[in-house]
Design a protein around this nucleic acid. Structure first.
Lengths: 236, 236
DNA sequence: TTTTGTGAATTGCTTCACAGCA
DNA sequence: TGCTGTGAAGCAATTCACAAAA
């Protein structure tokens, strides 16, 4: 029993999560990797936090702090060993092994993404393409590989057979949620969504979204702001 | 003179910028607009901050705070009038008028983006396409419009003539910075960049970047984390 | 009632500044 | 000297909680 006449402050200690890594730091980690891989092609051996930051418009402290969330990779007085850091960061991001990917929606965008080179050396390979349009079933979708459009009915089977764990969603917005559900049910664990909708998936799956119109709007806003800053009393 | 024997704290007041709007709030504003436009097609008249938040996985407080950065749009006891809010948000984002856009790089991705429907009703129209490959100059790039691939040499002239203020960059990474410079020099004010590089532009221009590989990596990391959370002592 | 708008409290992220190491 | 890793400080964003309005 609590004594009467005393106000209790319910200080629920927040059940110490093992200090979660800030989401912005994870986003930047990909950018560090991109720059590091670029340095590798230039055969740079080491790089300092300041140099890495300069290439990306960040401070040296930001770079060090970010990397420190994931471990101790640097060498005082030297910097970071590029090759070593690349392999460590790939390991952290999970791209040291190749992920098999399914793409759903073989429209203009879908087919363009299938042909996009550069996924592979980043650790991703599109190994299946699906579409609900019966007219394009069986169509070859990438001239350089024998990859044909499969029907949605084959989704579950193919995902299992080819050990597919990620999906790219390029279907119209009306069917996006439905297809996302199918992907999850088939065992896919992460979805890159190009449809302009906030997908709902169960908590054991991850979603990342790219909405072209949203990005254009952000540009529009920024440009408008720049104009306003340059000419505060613009034509009303 | 300052009195001796007293410690002064140099509190440099940060030259009060008229309370800048948080970047995350601006990003979410686009998502609110997307959802609001969806509600409009459903002929919903009003929406509360809670409903809007639920659709996007945000709290009601977040929604109210975000919108409040831009003005007072709500009606206590009622919520937000959908149609009114849509037009106000479009105004804020600058998409109440149409922006003319140039696309550079008529490869697979570039051509797919040209054909992408849905820009137009969002306030953007691609009115010119450029490429440096002489073999595809003059090619029709969108069956539904008379839009042909122009040479880079025409960039400046066409940008002026068609009042183009935004650019979409779909060229290989090697030439991305060079083309970005050309776009800026031609008078383009904002660039949506699909090449995996951090573009440098002068401060009177804006850049937004979409790196497919980066998004895939973020998914990869999230999926790895989910797996680790579900099975903390996984197969080492 | 319901729901907004908003100061205050809280949480989270970034920057600072420096000990320690090569 | 040059550079990392890291507590502490500072700043920014989110959430809370409630007065006011319909």
């Amino acid at each position: 029993m609590r004594p009467a006449g005393i106000k209790w402050k319910e200080t629920l200690v927040p059940m110490s999560k093992p200090d979660a890594i800030p989401a912005p730091a994870v986003r930047r980690l990909s950018l560090y990797l991109r720059e590091l891989e670029h340095l590798l092609t230039r055969e740079r051996r080491t790089v300092s936090s300041r140099q890495l930051g300069e290439a990306l418009g960040l401070t040296d402290a930001q770079v060090r702090k970010d990397l420190a969330y994931f471990g101790q990779f640097g060498h005082p007085g030297i910097g970071y060993h590029v090759e070593e850091l690349v392999s460590r960061v790939r390991r952290i991001l999970g791209t040291d092994k190749t992920w098999n990917v399914a793409l759903v929606g073989a429209g203009n965008l879908g087919r363009a993404l299938v042909c996009y080179r550069g996924y592979v050396k980043k650790g991703f390979e599109i190994v299946a393409v699906f579409d609900s349009d019966p007219r394009i079933l069986g169509d070859a979708v990438d001239p350089t590989r024998n990859l044909v459009v499969e029907p949605m009915a084959k989704l579950r089977e193919t995902v299992k057979k080819r050990k597919i764990r990620l999906g790219i969603l390029c279907v119209p917005v009306e069917s996006a949620q439905d297809v996302a559900d199918q992907l999850c049910a088939a065992g896919v664990r992460g979805i890159l969504n190009f449809a302009p909708i906030a997908l709902r998936v169960h908590e054991a799956a991850a979603v990342a979204s790219v909405d072209l119109a949203v990005h254009m709007e952000q540009l529009s806003f920024q440009v408008g702001n720049l104009a306003r800053a340059a000419d505060p009393g613009g034509a009303a």
